[in-house]
Computed example of a mutant assay.
Amino acid sequence: MIPVFDGHNDLLLRLHNAPEKRAEIWLTGEDKGHLDLPRMKAGGFAGGFFAIYIPSPHKDYGTDYMAAMENPPFRLPLPDLIDHHAAQPVALSMAGHLRWMERASDGAFKVCTTVAELRDCLTKGVISGIMHMEGAEAIGPDLDALYLYYDMGLRSIGPVWSRPTVFGHGVPFAFPSSPDTGDGLTDTGKALVKACNKLKIMIDLSHITEKGFWDVAKHSDAPLVATHSNAHAVTPSSRNLTDKQLAAIRESGGMVGLNYATSFLRRDGKQSADMDWTDVLVHLDHLLEKLGEDHLGLGSDYDGATIPQGITDVAGQQNLVQAMRDHGYGDALLHKICHENWFRLLGATWGA
């Protein structure tokens, strides 16, 4: 197996939603969702970004969302902004779950803040985790909480999920659609970018509008990164990246992690998992052409999306590796895509 370092997952949301079952979810596996410690070991999951995500309070939004994405075209309304007073307790809970995962794993999982730690984990067969925020709702406009979360281990943040924040605007879930769907960063968002640069926190551009993307490109001195996004030229979803954006990411020395979410992979925009490898490989080929082999990785969106039936969950991720191998990708390229490019990018961003 080639170890896979992954750009995005939502396991912490599962733990947050069922804290009384977290030992079963994490340590023994309950045969639900996409991730748990036994299946990570079985699938060669070397580590990844573990997202702190504040769920929308609209209980009926998820049902409408899922149903609409089965029948393109669609354009879903976004929930309202959540302020930091409401978001901080949830974010703190999820950060606590991540640290509990480390303590409960008996040495099998470690939260890392340097590339040296990531590489040491890879060598020793320990699964590594990076604390990430998908949407900066828990960071107030004064940015004070950013420094607190940094001290807790935060090393990656997206200014927005699709829902707006005080920092900027995200794209709605829409197909077909351009990512140019609204405004970009606010002045507070620009201040957040500069603060992250000083702290060497990676900035994630998945979910942000195209205007927001170019605002970050203008105001950031770090490589541009989209942890879980695909090619708009292949699947014209608002969540995917245009060739112009891909060129800017390559020029900056940045990265894109291939998102396994079916609605961002399938050329028909549907959410169904009933698909073969064709569309996945078309995305990979296009991203390689536009980014170059040093700037492409994997960003599954495990536990946050519908995944192709060929992968199903983390235990099946080597099926994707084999599909790439059968498609003609050599072992040197596969090692870059599966983990080496993420380590290079984080070294360039974190400086350690």
Rank of each mutant, 00 (worst) to 15 (best):
I203W: 05
P172W: 05
G168K: 01
D183V: 02
P179M: 09
T188R: 10
C196K: 14
A222W: 08
G170P: 05
F173G: 04
L224I: 10
A217S: 12
D180A: 12
G184Q: 11
K194I: 14
D180Y: 03
K200W: 00
P176W: 07
D221I: 14
P164C: 09
H219M: 05
I208D: 02
P172N: 07
A222V: 08
S220D: 11
L205G: 04
K211M: 03
P223M: 01
D180T: 05
A217V: 04
S229E: 00
S229H: 01
S178A: 03
D183Y: 10
V171I: 14
D183Q: 13
L192A: 01
A231M: 13
G212L: 06
P179G: 09
S229C: 00
S206M: 06
H207Y: 11
H232M: 11
G170K: 03
K194A: 06
V225Q: 12
A195I: 13
S177V: 09
I208S: 04
L205C: 12
K211T: 15
L205T: 05
I208F: 02
F173N: 14
S178D: 12
C196A: 13
F167S: 06
S178C: 05
G168W: 01
L192K: 03
L192C: 00
H232T: 14
H232N: 15
S162Y: 12
T186G: 04
T227P: 01
D180F: 02
I203L: 09
K194W: 01
F213R: 04
W214D: 06
E210F: 00
I203V: 15
G170R: 01
L185A: 07
D204H: 04
F175D: 10
L205S: 07
L199M: 13
D215H: 04
L185I: 04
L205K: 04
I201M: 07
P223S: 06
S178N: 13
H207S: 10
P176C: 07
F167C: 06
V216L: 01
G189Y: 10
S178P: 11
T186E: 10
R163F: 09
V160D: 08
G170F: 02
A226S: 12
S220P: 12
H207G: 07
V225Y: 06
E210I: 01
D215K: 03
S220W: 08
F167R: 05
G168S: 02
D215E: 07
L192H: 02
L224F: 08
S162N: 15
L185P: 04
F173L: 10
S178E: 10
G170L: 03
L205R: 09
